[in-house]
């Protein structure tokens, strides 16, 4: 399912909803999550999962093609942990 399919399904399930509003709802949710992570905040959606950011220290990596050592800067990576309910539902529990 792509973002446009998600928007379409949302609009279908809520017939009174304008397509434009369905688009804005999805965009707003994703933007809020992104902005929260950019601030270093955590996003906890019980039953679905939680988004957070993790720090990765600077390290010396290697160009796999040439074997040459390259410095990799410290960075922040997004992380998602599946919620209990979704994890159970994925396994038919």
């Amino acid at each position: 399912m792509t973002k446009s399919e998600l928007i379409q399904r949302l609009a279908e399930r809520n017939p009174h909803l304008l397509q434009r509003d369905a688009e804005r709802i999805v965009a707003t949710i994703l933007e809020e999550i992104t902005a929260a992570l950019a601030r270093g905040d955590r996003v906890e959606l019980r039953g679905f999962g939680a988004f957070s950011v993790k720090q990765r220290a600077a390290r010396t990596g290697r160009n796999p093609r040439t074997g040459e050592a390259v410095d990799v800067d410290a960075k922040v990576v997004p992380y998602f942990k599946t919620g209990k309910e979704l994890r159970e539902r994925l396994n038919g529990e």
Binding site: I25, T28, E31, E32, G40, D41, V43, E44, L45, R46
Partner: peptide, 24 residues
């Protein structure tokens, strides 16, 4: 857990709902 901070805020459905309410 590595690199996790305790000081930051947590966003929940309530904030997403508020954003959708404001935005849409």
């Amino acid at each position: 857990m590595v690199g996790e901070q305790a000081v930051n805020d947590t966003i929940t459905r309530a904030q997403l709902t508020e954003a959708v309410y404001q935005e849409v």
